[in-house]
Nucleic acid binder design. Structure first.
Lengths: 205, 205
DNA sequence: CCAGCTAGCTAACGCTCATTCGTCTGGCGA
DNA sequence: TCGCCAGACGAATGAGCGTTAGCTAGCTGG
């Protein structure tokens, strides 16, 4: 720390401190609601209680906000996956764990998921390819589990790629309808979807 | 006809005729690629080989283009569903038919599906509620089939709403990865996904 | 108590976008 | 052949956007 880490600054006592993280958080909320192109910086600023140009004290550009959100999110998805399947043996248990953690993430990080699925195409080229490659990486990892299961674990599925798409994308959709105050908890939904995954690949214990 | 129906006008022989339908078609293509807010009218005009203001000879406003696309698409989805399950008896056969036609539509009408899923929120209020109600109508119809199947058709599913979400949204995702020149035909994918649907609800023949 | 940095503000710029208006032109009906 | 009109055009408008520049108040470290 450089002598003043986590310093709390508030010029007006009614206004909570604005930091790079609070800007990212508001951008995340509004991008998820209206989309990147549909969200003017003025709305982000207004939600934070400051004027638009003041945002530039906490960010480089609007584009960089999007890039940061997307990169962070995909890093977390891959980390989640790695942690979930580490020390788990057998294709059925691994597919169950991978689907569960992916579904859980889409229930608990709805905003991030909506932005990834809607606004990835708003990136421009160096980043776009990089982000897409990350998503493919995850899909390939899930597909590898399914292929493994077809060979050794009692899965019966005609096309592993098709099954992996179906499993991943039905999980993604959770972000579109899940509500924190709804009748089901995130964990319940994640467990149920993990069960769907095993049924899709026709796993018989 | 009023004396000149389907008249073919081309001021320059190299330029194909511009009509309301060709404008809608180009808007559909570009909205699907870049999103509604990310597509300027100038790009639609350029793709048609005319200048931007000339578009107004064929449309009311940019917003009306979006509204027309969304309304038409949802009408067709509901019509597809009704035609697919008409004269089909039994929850299993009905769920199979409903999923198959929905999946098939998302493989063959990718652009429409992408715009519906990305840009519905860009509508403003009278239309937004109307469009959302149509989607719910479809979801309720599919859920009703599942509930029926749980009671009488040998389905085993904890939460019919969850299952209907999973089935519908995994089908929606087809629009995101399906390619006409890919290794699988639209019919093959639709059949496979209809099978997934029956496995999700644990149907045993 | 002073220097300096942080982070806010107003003003302004340049650009793009959707939309309007008035004009012109070329093919069709009479 | 002549008048009409659908439809293309250029020019212009006004709003909104992201971004920059310059200024200022106040907290903090010395």
């Amino acid at each position: 720390m450089r002598g003043h880490a986590a310093r709390v600054i508030r010029m007006c006592p009614a206004r909570p401190a604005v930091t790079r993280e609070t800007v990212l958080d508001q951008a995340l909320t509004l991008f998820a609601e209206r989309g990147y192109h549909g969200t003017p910086l003025s709305e982000i600023a207004e939600a934070l209680g400051i004027r638009t140009p003041s945002l530039y004290n906490h960010m480089g550009s609007k584009h960089e906000l999007l890039e940061t959100i997307l990169t962070r999110t995909l890093d977390e998805v891959l980390a989640d996956f790695a942690a979930a399947v580490r020390d788990v043996d057998g294709p059925a248990a691994r597919l169950h764990a991978a689907t569960r953690v992916y579904a859980l993430r889409h229930a608990t990080h709805r905003r991030e998921a909506l932005v990834v699925n809607r606004d990835t195409t708003s990136l421009d080229e160096p980043d776009l390819s990089r982000v897409r490659e990350r998503r493919r990486e995850h899909e390939r990892a899930v597909r590898a589990i399914i292929i493994d299961g077809v060979g050794t674990g009692g899965f019966q599925v005609g096309d592993p790629a098709l099954a992996s798409f179906a499993i991943l994308e039905m999980s993604v959709s959770i972000a579109r309808w899940f509500r924190d105050d709804g009748p089901r908890t995130a964990e319940q939904v994640a467990d149920e979807f993990a069960g769907y995954a095993l049924r899709i690949v026709r796993y018989r214990p």
